[in-house]
Design a protein around this nucleic acid. Structure first.
Lengths: 202, 202, 202, 202
DNA sequence: CCTTAAACGAGACGGTACGTCTCGTCTTCAA
DNA sequence: TTGAAGACGAGACGTACCGTCTCGTTTAAGG
């Protein structure tokens, strides 16, 4: 028998330690990059025993990821997309913002490190999907559904395909450094998607 | 010039050692995965001193990447796309093959590890661009240019955008595990791109 | 104070590890000689991490030396010389025993290696002086002082000179392999010293 | 079969290389100490390939030792002791010089390193005996023999013992750092030896 | 209020791998 | 044909971290 693995009691968790660890992790990943970051350095910076980290997180990636989530999760709990009635305008708004974030050099290092971790660790990918990606895709899909019902998209438009056509090219361009991530590019992608899935023009 | 540190003389390089190292790296990354792979294990498997690896490669990632490239680079030197005269058919062929490769579980582990490395190490990314990605994008762009000249795409179609619209969504779906990478999905993407950038229908 | 580097806390030291390291070091120096001995081999033989050695000893020489001391230090804490009342007899006893030890081939290799280390490393020499040599010279000097007070040595006999006249020649002969280290030689040396520093015969 | 060991042909030896190697070795042992000295550094300093060193010397110790010998061997080939007719005076002269050399800090480092090497490597010890120590002991013994014949030593004085009584204490004091190596100490030793082995006083 | 059990900080431990260094051998190339 | 230059297989160096395991020391319920 491998044992019941005596899990720690979350009710006794020290909130100050938890916060200090996430703060230290966030600082260090920005200073050193993910690769040079170590659990020992996080513990030292946070003024915490290593075991306190190992007790609550399964891996370095999980800590950093948590730190990232803690910073980016919408505290109000609701992620929404604008709905002005004009789908093209709304999508341009969202994709321009996305492009802006990806183009930010400060985001680049952390974003790439986290992406690399997430792609490589199935458990982290699951977490990332549940807490960040799926909510984003869902609200996007809902905005598209509304537009489809309003006749701004073909009735047979595949919404899963649509969101991937929107975000995929930006992501592809960002990760591979293929070209500028500027508002114009965002507009081009939106135009293409509307051209492909918008109402037939004849 | 980056520094005065005496670089080794490539003309004196031992070709047998080089080959043994790349072979060992390829085998080990398949057996253990990238994370559990170490320089020491590569050296041991290749029957080579560690210094011989450090002399010629800057990092573990670079070795594995070289091993991967040595295996995947087209030895005949020319990467080509089919040209049957029907752009849609040709693109479906290429994207179906791409989807098939991404869907292969054997490719998945290595592919993700390598992708993670490449995204994270600028030098590797440059190498990857030059030796694999840019050639692929270029031949794709050329096929699209031919089609555009033949009137199968709008005269003002942006070819850079077009290739990103083609590969971006597949890549996005693959990395995030968003849905099946089957021939039908490839066809959907191609249809969307043609719908967006094909000749106007009125 | 020698430096700010955080010293380990001796109270937390693992006594079993310490003993295993010293035992392994003693065995290996006998098997391989000092030159072929490595920290890695000691760690492996002792079933101990290398860091556990580096944490507590500054050098390979220090470990081996400690192993040697641990074996030779008088556990009862008191090193004494016989005192039968007859100085000649007592000195002959001591020098014969010393000669016997030096002549032992099993002692020879280890003894030479350790001597070489001690002569070359000032810190080790200090340690050696404090823990082995000075106590020996002191008890010898005390025996001589007693004898001088009893009129068995001249009143003006220099006791420092005396001990060096006793031990120096044995040591010299041993290190250079100049001749047999047998009881007769010990007796000769004692006779000479008594001849030089004994009571005047006129 | 272990082979005939194809020895290099001494007649083809490059004298300039040999001299450059010994010079470099001498300089480096003074600059770095024996421990930090490496064959590679000697080769680099001498402007010589490593193989040229390995071809002619069996070990680092041998090179350094050779360099030391080349510097200290009496080029006129004859080592002599003064013979004024007064044994005490002659011995005091020799031992005072010996003490002076041992007390020289510049000699100390090299001397200790070389001694350590010699004690530890039987082949080097043999060499040292043959080329330096035995000649010294022999001339000393001869001087004592002359004195014995002149009645300045007892007829039954053991000359081997005598030389060890002379040099042993100095050496012992030097290696262990027991006290000052000054002319007075040399005189004390000589006085003791003459007291022990000189003509009986009754 | 007092006990008591858990989480905590600290850090030693057995290990693995790092990237560097030096060893002694082998190979290449220019004189 | 030699000898400088230096790549090679080998393996030890000393360091950094790993993840586990005690140590006392808080700390917060619950008896």
């Amino acid at each position: 028998m491998t044992g019941p693995q005596t899990a720690p009691d979350p009710s006794r968790r020290n909130e100050q330690s938890r916060a200090a660890i996430l703060t230290a992790a966030a600082e260090l990943v920005a200073e050193l990059g993910f690769g040079k970051l170590t659990i020992e350095k996080i513990a030292a910076r946070a003024g915490v025993g290593k075991q306190t980290i190992y007790r609550w997180w399964p891996s370095k990636g999980a800590v950093v990821f948590d730190a990232f989530l803690a910073a980016s999760e919408n505290p109000s709990g609701s992620l929404t997309l604008p709905d002005t009635g004009d789908l093209g305008e709304d999508l341009r708004t969202v994709l321009r913002l996305t492009a802006l974030e990806l183009a930010d050099p400060a985001f680049d290092r952390t974003g790439r490190a986290l992406t690399a971790e997430v792609l490589t660790d199935p458990a982290l990918l699951r977490d990332y999907r549940e807490r960040l990606l799926d909510p984003l895709l869902t609200v996007t899909r809902e905005r598209l559904r509304t537009a489809r019902e309003a006749g701004q998209l073909r009735a047979d438009a595949d919404l899963d395909l649509a969101v991937e056509l929107l975000y995929g090219p930006l992501y592809y361009r960002w990760l591979h450094g293929l070209g500028p991530l500027d508002p114009g590019y965002a507009d081009q992608v939106v135009a293409a998607v509307l051209g492909a899935l918008g109402p037939t023009r004849d």
